[in-house]
Simulated scan of single mutants.
Amino acid sequence: MTEKMTISRLASAADVNVETVRFYQRTGLIDEPARPYSGYRTYGGDDVRRIRFIKRAQRLGFTLDEIASLLKLEGSQTCAATRDLAARKLAMVEAKLKDLLAIKTALAMMVSHCDSEHPSVGCPIIQALLDD
C-alpha cells in the first residue's frame, strides 16, 4: 500500500517548505487532492517524486513554465522535445558564462588598476565606471 502523508510530511519528504507545495498547487505543477471527510488532504510517493523533479529542474535553470512543459511531455516525442529544451537551456547558460567571463575580466582589470595606481584624484574604479 502507498504511504499517505499530510502536506507537512510531503514538504518534509520532498525537502521543501509547505508554502512551496501550496505554490506548486496554485500554479498547476502538482495536483491538489480532494479534501476527504476527515478534512486532511493526503499525498503519496508520486507527489514527492514530482516535487523533487521540479526542484532538480529549477537547479538546472529551467523556469517553472519550462518545467510545466516538461511535465506534460509524454509518448514517443518526449525525448526529442526534452532534448531540444535542454539544448536551448544549454545555449543560454553558455551565453551567460561568456557574459560572466567578460564581467570577471573587467572587474579584475579595475581592481588591478586600483591596486597598482595611487590616484591623486578619486578612485580608478569609480572613474572607469564614469568613463564611456
Rank of each mutant, 00 (worst) to 15 (best):
V16H: 02
D132W: 00
T20F: 09
L129P: 01
L60H: 06
D47Y: 06
A128C: 05
G44V: 08
L101M: 13
A57W: 12
R35M: 03
T78G: 00
I54W: 06
M5W: 01
E3A: 08
L70W: 11
R49M: 15
A91G: 04
V121I: 14
N17A: 11
R83N: 13
K89Y: 13
A102I: 04
L10W: 00
R35V: 13
Q77H: 13
R22N: 10
M5S: 03
P124K: 02
L10H: 03
G61E: 10
C79P: 01
A11F: 01
D84V: 06
T20G: 02
V18Q: 01
P33W: 15
A14N: 08
G61Q: 09
A34H: 14
P119E: 12
A13C: 03
A91K: 14
M109L: 03
C114A: 06
D47E: 07
T105H: 10
D65V: 08
D31G: 10
F53V: 12
K98G: 01
I103K: 10
G39N: 05
I126S: 04
R9F: 00
R50T: 15
S8H: 07
A11K: 03
C114Q: 12
S116V: 09
E94S: 11
P36A: 11
A14I: 14
T20N: 02
S8P: 03
